[in-house]
Amino acid sequence: MIKKMVMDEERLREVLSFSCIGLPEEEYPEVLDRVNAVLRMCDEMQELVGSDVRPFEWDVIKSPARRKDIPVAWDGRDRMLDRAPVRDGDFFRVPRIIAKDGTEEEEEE
């Protein structure tokens, strides 16, 4: 049985929050139209599949050798530091996100 689902504004707000994406409210109708057009394209797939159909998985002829799980010497330290966007001695300087007292703030360390 086909369960046609429609995305409404309330669900869109929820999804925006899940995906950490902001969207101006004037763009809501366009996005809802687009999402619902894609969902309509997919409705008929539900009718095709029964519970006995297995979900897709890849098969292999021969699995490749994996990397050995051992520590390896790495000499890229200085090269990486040279490419740091903001370097402070032997450290990368990054924006402060969470304040020391546990409250969140925008100030840079």
């Binding site: 997919c42 797939m45 539900q46 095709l48 599949v49 159909v53 297995r54 979900p55 897709f56 998985e57």
Partner: peptide, 8 residues
């Protein structure tokens, strides 16, 4: 359903 249709 999409992952099953993919197998089909």
């Amino acid at each position: 359903p999409a992952t099953k249709v993919r197998q089909m």
